[in-house]
């Protein structure tokens, strides 16, 4: 769209940025034509700002750590397993859970755009959407992990999963040692967003603030 010529001298009026004008134009047209309902848009925004976030995923991981049947179901069909906890993708993609083990570490990227498992992690952090992460995660995952302060034994295999519009991935991090007998709620506090993307590990009990 052509740049609009703004008059810098009008002192009494309001100012909308070029981007704000485009967004308002789009929303007005879509509303007038009956494609969107402003109240429904507000509800979507509110959900993502307040309800949908990485705590959903943390609860899923904590459940998998404490309930072997749930873990098995999660690894078999994560879409169905997280739906039983009320987390459903808004766009109908499939969720796949990949488990970290002593021999293998999993890391997730979307090289095309920024596909991300919203229903369990909320919206992606800014670095996940950046070109350096999208390109380096595939070419140099160990280097990326080092940037995030994670170093793994040499013999640990690092597997990188490239998300698509149809398939998103959730990393099931390793349960930290020294957490035997912990409640799901307490365990969930150890699960960071990054540990479920694979750019981090779950916190150890020692890392928790007292």
């Amino acid at each position: 769209m052509a740049d609009h010529d703004h008059d810098p001298h009008h002192e009494h009026g309001s100012e909308l940025s070029e981007t704000q004008l485009r967004v308002r134009a789009l929303e007005t047209i879509l509303t007038e034509k009956g494609y969107v309902d402003p109240a429904a848009l507000d509800a979507i925004v509110e959900a993502y700002e307040t309800k949908v976030g990485p705590r959903n995923g943390a609860a899923v991981v904590a459940r998998a750590w404490t309930d072997p049947a749930f873990k098995q179901a999660l690894l078999k069909d994560a879409t169905a397993a997280v739906a039983t906890l009320g987390h459903v993708s808004p766009v109908g993609d499939h969720l796949v859970a990949v488990e970290n083990t002593s021999g293998r570490h999993n890391m997730v990227v979307c090289t095309l755009c920024s596909c991300y498992p919203w229903e369990v992690l909320g919206l992606p952090p800014v670095w996940y959407k950046s070109a350096p992460y999208r390109s380096r995660a595939v070419k140099d995952p160990r280097g990326v992990l080092a940037d995030f302060g994670v170093s793994l034994p040499k013999e640990t295999e690092i597997r990188v999963w490239d998300s698509t519009a149809e398939t998103r991935f959730l990393v099931l991090p390793t349960r930290p040692a020294g957490t035997e007998g912990w409640s799901e709620e307490r365990l969930a506090d150890l699960v960071t967003r990054d540990s479920m993307i694979g750019t981090g590990l779950a916190r150890s009990p020692a890392e928790m603030p007292r």
């Binding site: 789009l26 929303e27 494609y35 429904a40 848009l41 507000d42 925004v45 993502y48």
Partner: peptide, 8 residues
Amino acid sequence: QAFAMALA
């Protein structure tokens, strides 16, 4: 707003 429009 842009995010929500795409979902809607």
